[in-house]
Amino acid sequence: MTLCRQQRFPGTRSSVRAARQFAGDTLGQWGIADRGDDIRFCTSELAANAVLHGVPNGRDFRVRLLWEEDLVRVEVRDSGPGLPVTGRPEVDAVSGRGLWLVSELADEFGVVDQLVGKTVWARFRCSTIRPGARHLPGQG
């Protein structure tokens, strides 16, 4: 069974925190006990990049989480032009570490160029399920 939850957020800085909270709440509802910190952190980084570089003024972005068997996939979709650049940042760089950290923490990481915008995703292998968790079918 695949579970999916998604939510749209305005292209504002406060949405980064809201996206991280959405991811944490979703993981809690699904009963995923391990990798939660990594998933919340990566959701924050992907959302921050969407807000800072991907969302045109007045537009929003979407965060979607999917869980199937032992994999959680986080996707952040925005409608802005261009694709993110990843790579190891220079030692003295003051920015550019976010996507590198995501690529290091996630088991898989990628970008899908869309007709309008892009989807940046990260996938995490999760093996621990919290006892007594409620799995809520039909979340969307």
Rank of each mutant, 00 (worst) to 15 (best):
87 G>T: 05
107 D>G: 14
111 V>G: 10
63 V>S: 07
83 L>H: 01
65 L>Q: 03
101 L>W: 07
96 G>E: 04
81 P>A: 11
71 L>A: 02
65 L>R: 09
67 W>H: 08
76 V>Y: 03
75 E>N: 10
98 G>P: 05
108 E>P: 01
91 V>F: 08
68 E>H: 11
96 G>R: 09
100 W>G: 01
98 G>Q: 06
62 R>Q: 14
58 G>R: 01
101 L>F: 13
109 F>L: 06
79 S>F: 11
80 G>A: 13
90 E>I: 02
81 P>L: 04
88 R>P: 03
94 V>P: 00
69 E>K: 12
60 D>W: 03
85 V>W: 07
82 G>C: 00
78 D>F: 04
77 R>N: 04
66 L>G: 07
76 V>P: 00
103 S>M: 11
99 L>M: 14
67 W>S: 03
95 S>V: 10
88 R>Y: 07
89 P>N: 10
106 A>D: 02
106 A>Y: 04
97 R>F: 14
106 A>K: 06
76 V>N: 01
95 S>N: 05
92 D>R: 09
95 S>I: 04
86 T>R: 11
75 E>C: 12
64 R>M: 07
91 V>K: 13
84 P>N: 06
94 V>N: 11
80 G>E: 04
73 R>G: 01
111 V>P: 07
67 W>C: 11
103 S>T: 13
97 R>T: 12
97 R>Q: 03
84 P>Q: 06
66 L>C: 12
99 L>K: 01
103 S>R: 15
71 L>E: 11
91 V>A: 09
98 G>H: 07
100 W>T: 02
88 R>C: 15
111 V>L: 13
108 E>Q: 15
64 R>V: 15
65 L>H: 07
66 L>A: 04
104 E>A: 10
92 D>A: 10
111 V>F: 09
63 V>D: 04
78 D>K: 05
109 F>P: 00
90 E>R: 15
71 L>Y: 02
72 V>W: 01
80 G>T: 12
108 E>M: 12
61 F>N: 08
61 F>L: 08
59 R>E: 09
104 E>V: 13
107 D>Q: 15
91 V>D: 05
60 D>Q: 10
98 G>F: 02
101 L>Q: 15
94 V>W: 14
85 V>E: 13
110 G>T: 05
63 V>R: 01
68 E>W: 10
66 L>D: 13
64 R>L: 14
95 S>D: 11
106 A>W: 00
85 V>A: 14
75 E>K: 00
93 A>K: 12
72 V>G: 03
81 P>F: 01
67 W>P: 00
107 D>C: 01
62 R>K: 15
82 G>S: 02
88 R>Q: 15
74 V>N: 02
71 L>S: 12
80 G>M: 11
109 F>T: 06
106 A>Q: 01
70 D>Y: 08
74 V>E: 02
73 R>M: 11
70 D>I: 08
109 F>W: 14
68 E>A: 14
94 V>M: 11
98 G>T: 12
